[in-house]
Amino acid sequence: MDTKWTSEELFRNTIDSSTDMIQVFKAVRNETGEIVDFHWIFNNKTSESHYGNVIGMSLLELNPGVVKVGIFDEFRKVVETGRPNISVHRYQHEQFNGWFHQSSVKLGDGISTTTRDITELIKTQELLQKAETDKHREMLEMTMRSLEEERSRISESLHNGVGQTLYAVKLYLSRLADTTVPAERDEILSTIDDLVSSAIREIRSISHELVPISFEKVGLKNNVEEVIKRLGQDIVFRLRYLGPDRIADRNLELGIFRIFQELINNVIKHSKCDLCRIFIKVGKKEIHLVVQDNGIGIKPENQHVSGIGIQSIRAKMKMLQGNLSIESDGGRGTKIEIRVPVP
């Protein structure tokens, strides 16, 4: 059996199905023609659930807050100019306390409005913004800590390494000035030459850790091989490298190299291993880096609260939006794996 709807019933049922508040107001004018109020002439079911039966009643008497937040002026301007209006207001008056998105259009000598409660949406956005702000603050704090720790490490290297070597050079120069024996002078000069060469090597090493001079020219693979060659004296390093020698994004390439440096420094300083395997795969969508040693390992309770190196790596990984995992058993070595997406 077909149900026949009148136009009025069809319109009413369609409007009542909306979860938005749909209202129609007629302008109330004074003797000079100025709009001084609006009266309700239509409410859908959603509006009635908030207001009740208010047809024919005054907007300003029931909701005087519309003047404070500027809604009344917007309604009046729509009627007077004929231009639609869309606005968002925080309304904390009468029976409402929230955020509302409202569109208004002229309808005869009045106005038709559609109002949506967006309070939960705004709250969700605020929570997301706060979470993002907290995340950025944490990243900044971790980055600053790692930078301070890096400065301290370089300062210590300069003081304990280069500084002491140069002080020894100064002492030998004083001895050189006090001796006239040719053989002794030759021996002192030879020692000074060795000390200066040592200081130059130390400075080059520190400089390479800061910004490798060759990085721009030779890229990731060759710099990784250079680090292994330079540091591989007491530890056997075995490298497997897959993919192109260079990463197109220089910032990403330098970031990966810095992480690799930190991992290797940790292996040398803390692992007490004699073998370290390195795997690097440069893919189109992801950079995969694994450093695995056969050293003393990290105790489970210390894997999440580690020293300078891991803190610095965690900060870099957050900035690169990558993932870091640590696998270690006491006495059975450590495996650190990172995955970083390629933009």
Rank of each mutant, 00 (worst) to 15 (best):
F72N: 08
V105A: 13
G333E: 04
G82M: 06
L127R: 14
L62V: 01
S112K: 08
R137V: 12
T6D: 11
L242I: 12
T81P: 07
V211E: 13
C273Q: 02
A27C: 10
M319S: 08
I118L: 06
A199S: 08
V88K: 14
V162A: 06
L140S: 10
E253K: 04
V267K: 04
F75I: 04
F260V: 01
Y51G: 00
L128E: 12
G307V: 06
R238F: 00
E301V: 11
S207Y: 05
K4N: 15
L275F: 09
E262R: 11
I118T: 05
V227C: 04
E149M: 11
T119Q: 03
Y51P: 00
K284Y: 05
E74C: 13
L127K: 15
E61Y: 02
G255D: 02
T113R: 01
N97A: 11
E337G: 01
V267G: 03
R339T: 13
Y241W: 09
R204E: 14
T114E: 09
S190E: 11
S214H: 06
G295K: 01
Q303G: 00
V66G: 01
D194Y: 09
K68F: 12
Q164D: 07
R250E: 14
S214N: 10
P343F: 02
I188L: 13
S18Q: 06
L239E: 05
R332M: 13
N160I: 03
E138M: 13
E253A: 09
N53E: 15
T115I: 14
Y241G: 07
T19S: 15
F96S: 03
N63P: 00
T124D: 14
L62C: 00
S271R: 05
T124R: 14
S103N: 11
S328D: 04
R185E: 14
E253R: 02
V28T: 11
Q311M: 10
H93C: 06
I71A: 09
E9G: 02
R238L: 11
N53R: 12
H288P: 00
S152K: 13
R151Q: 14
S87E: 07
E120G: 08
V181C: 12
S112M: 15
I200N: 04
R258Y: 10
L189Y: 06
V162M: 04
N323H: 12
V36L: 06
R116N: 04
L128K: 10
M139A: 09
M139E: 10
